[in-house]
Design a protein around this nucleic acid. Structure first.
Length: 367
DNA sequence: TGAGGGTTTCCTGCTT
DNA sequence: GAAGCAGGAAACCCTC
């Protein structure tokens, strides 16, 4: 890969990020970098980032490879650095990997001056998010979940086309998301080795399955200005057999004995409630694409676009593969009484945050 | 150990 | 008729 290609990729990444003529490209960014603070940058690009997301709104630890590329691109543009001097190999890393680099590694990879600049920028960003780390731990967890959920769908398959509830051999069990991560690793997007065969084996099982072919998302149109097509996959999630399922026992007549054997530990860490989970999805517009959207951001009115997908994401978080929108919505309705949510009459899949909710208001999220 | 919170599950009836 | 909404009831797991 030659340097001009790198430059082209960087520019493409930039163009995708800033599709309008207001792109902060080298030619349009006339403000000298030394005079521009991170705060002013945020203000300059807030409109674009509100819909597309950007590295500077995300903890570097959670940057995708693309975020890293965009961040490097920004500094290339900002410092008028010659991108031809960069090696794309060094740009091909995600945030986790990037954050492990020390100053020496950075300057070694990107040159003394540019590497130092990147190192300093990263340290500032890391420090910024470290301050909020404790408060945002659950939010980050949701963010990671969304990342995993959305980014690993192979192209060409409908979101949650098939959901299979199944038992899993004991040796497959993993604590927390470990199992899911393992599964994810095996099923690399675009690969044809793991996912298909795994999916087929599950789909061919006799376990219960649920599918909502006529859920409201099916009525969505690409013309919806707030709907962004997302990479999708036929999502399969299975759960270990372990403890008794929480909640009212499902009727035996509805599920087979096999289904009853899929009971598992539903233990969920304290501190992550459903409404917080929903809120965290909503305040990550760059990650919730296609799942939910704000109807009225200021009033806290939001809508489920892919209700079953959100329910399954919630089910993942709670390690409950049988979660459905119907159950999730029942839990949501309990929030009315506590005024965490308010009713929005006459509108399907639409809810509104109530006075006892927090963390979603524009001023609270620092926008 | 029990109470209470926060779901989870099932259900019936109603609305869209 | 299907999907979604509303809310009662029961059960479960967790924290205190």
């Amino acid at each position: 890969m030659d340097s001009s290609e790198l430059s082209r990729i960087l520019n493409n990444a930039n163009a995708n990020l800033y599709p309008s003529e207001s792109q902060p490209t080298l030619t349009t960014m006339m403000v000298p970098s030394m005079l521009r603070s991170p705060q002013t940058l945020d203000m300059s690009y807030s409109n674009s980032f509100n819909t597309l997301g950007a590295w500077h709104q995300v903890n570097p630890q959670y940057w995708t490879k693309r975020n890293v590329l965009e961040w490097i691109d920004f500094h290339v543009e900002d410092s008028k650095y010659d991108a031809n001097l960069l090696s794309l190999e060094y740009c091909n890393m995600d945030g986790t990997m990037l954050c492990q680099l020390g100053r020496d590694a950075m300057t070694g990879m990107f040159g003394l001056l540019f590497g130092e600049r990147l190192y300093q920028s990263l340290e500032v960003l890391k420090a910024k998010y470290t301050d909020d780390l404790t408060q945002n731990c659950t939010l980050n967890e949701t963010y990671e979940l969304l990342n995993d959920f959305l980014l690993d769908f192979p192209q060409g398959l409908g979101l949650l086309d098939t959901v299979v509830v199944n038992s899993v051999p004991a040796d497959k069990k993993e604590a927390d998301f470990g199992y899911y991560n393992e599964y994810k690793t095996q099923l690399t997007p675009g690969s044809d080795n793991g996912y298909d065969s795994y999916s087929e084996s599950l789909q061919s099982s006799t376990a219960g399955s649920f599918l909502n072919p006529s859920s409201p998302e099916s009525t969505m149109s690409d013309s919806d200005p707030e709907y962004y097509p997302i990479p999708t996959k036929s999502f399969v999630k299975q759960e270990p057999v372990e403890k008794k399922k929480r909640g009212r026992p499902p009727k035996l007549s509805r599920g087979s004995e096999h289904f009853m054997e899929t009971k598992k530990n539903k233990h969920a860490p304290r501190g992550t409630h459903l409404w917080e989970f929903i809120r965290d999805i909503l305040i990550h517009p760059e990650k919730n694409q296609g799942l939910m959207k704000w109807e009225d951001r200021r009033d806290g009115v939001f809508k489920f676009l892919k209700s079953e997908a959100v329910a399954q994401l919630w089910g993942q978080k709670k390690k409950n593969s049988s979660m459905t929108y119907e159950k999730l919505s029942r839990a949501m309705r309990y929030y009315y009484k506590r005024e965490i949510l308010e009713r929005v009459d006459g509108r399907r899949l639409v809810y509104k945050f109530g006075k006892n909710s927090s963390g979603w208001k524009l001023e609270e999220v620092g926008v």
